[in-house]
Design a binder for these strands. Sequence first.
RNA 1: GGCCCGUUCGUCUAAGGGUUAGGACACCACCCUUUCACGGUGGUGAUACGAGUUCGAAUCUCGUACGGGCUACCA
Length: 522
Amino acid sequence: MASGYLCSMSKKVRVRFAPSPTGGLHLGGMRTVLYNYLFAKKNSGDFIVRIEDTDQSRYVAGAEEYIFNCLKWAGLEPDESTIHGGEYKPYRQSERKDIYRKYAEQLIKDGHAYYAFDTPEELEKMRNDFKTDHNHSPQYDGLVRMKMRNSVTLSSDETKKLLDEGARHVIRIKMPEHETITFIDMIRGEVSFDTSLVDDKVLLKADGMPTYHLAVVVDDYLMKISHAFRGEEWLSSAPVHVLLWKYLFGINEMPQWAHLPLILGPNGKLSKRDGAKYGFPVFAMNWTDPKTHELVEGFKEKGFLPEAFLNLLALLGWNDGTEQEIFTKEELIEKFSIERIHSSGAKFDYEKAKWFNHEWMKRLQISDLPAGRQGLRFQIETFFNTKGITISDNVKFEKIIALVKDRCNLLTDFYDQSYFFFITPDKWDVDAVKPKWNEDKKNYFESWVSKLTDTKEWDSVSLENDFKLLAAEKNIKPGELLLPLRVMLVGGKFGPPVFEIAAVLGKEETIKRIKSAIIMFQ
RNA sequence: GGCCCGUUCGUCUAAGGGUUAGGACACCACCCUUUCACGGUGGUGAUACGAGUUCGAAUCUCGUACGGGCUACCA
């Protein structure tokens, strides 16, 4: 197990994360950022977020803003300069093409890379020709290299001629024949690969854009990254990156890698399709795929609290060794350690995710939100607005939220749990009352209403006292009257304690609902 | 097919050679509550398999099985 990297660190911690904007910001990506953030915070380091900007993703407009907003919502304090400016700009790969080409040419000069002129058709043919039962997908390796059109097989005159003519070409790394590449992963410890099993990866594409392999190494060097976190899916290409560091900048300059275990859906790697299929969000915030126009729902819009989102994400593959499960962001920063990150993938469990949110809902203090969190109040009000309810009385609103939050899993549950405070129910569970409804009860409620009309005290305790006093006078068990009263006020058998409801509804509305219900129960 | 990574209740996980293998979600039962929840108490439920090392293995080693990842001019 790797250890001691904290004390041996000589430069500032900078962590880097490269989300793919084509797919929004999913759970795995978000967790990578979170671990980056926790690690950087803990070590007073910088936190660089950079977005891959490749030919495939360039069509995505607004991706930077989207990711910025996701991080902001989750409380990961993104600094606008880490996306658009600052010391290391530009960040878009398309604006750094010259830099990548310079390093790619450098590799060729040193004999570690070469020009390859093969067309896609020729590559396709090669893969077909070399395909055997024992080798499903032949690679562009040391053997194949000698049979293709590239600057290794071509004479230098031929190569120069092609380049001068402007022939389409890529630059490939020349993998050494039999070398064992070993590096230390912060989570897995020592990992080694044989170079003969890795192919000559493309470093610079025909359009002049770098592949991830070149970009990650060059950028991490230029941006002085000391620790790099990424998903486990990158582990198999790590030897390419290690080699590039060795050739370009020296192995001692290489950042420390942490390959995070994958977050799994019900069937393997979590995909955005899983969300639609199984009914849970996979992205931090709503994301509309610009090509397919398909909307993928986000945790925010689904009604998750950012505190809960961070909490559940952090615990998916990490724990502090105690039985504590609810952590504030500050506690996470304090207790986070890379040593305790798991090496195996974790299956995402939506039921448990909702439990985390419920725990945070119970802790929610809407009347006492810190300055930076007013957006949450706006969000809750918006949920009501979309259902046709406008919040006019803030004090009442806060009381209602406090009254029902314990029984809500998601912010969106607020409506179902409390709409009857704002609008008179249009449906009553008459069947629950009618069989036991009689003249005595009718008389009771009629006299209670007339008492209420004169009462001055309007709080849940005195309402309940008066209610029970009158019941004793009329010789009726209070228990017989509570259910009818509840149905009168809320329409059904649910909701917070009934006298609390009456207290919040107010005198006029309470009396009105009882009166109309008495008529209905006939 | 090849390579890499992994494997403790259904799920997330604790236990760093000695524990009745602990906790949480979910599920079930009971209690609380004259509604629905919250909450409380208890229950069902796991070391993939096979060898080896050891007085002693979930823990160390090897093999097998299973799962996942990679195998693109995608990231």
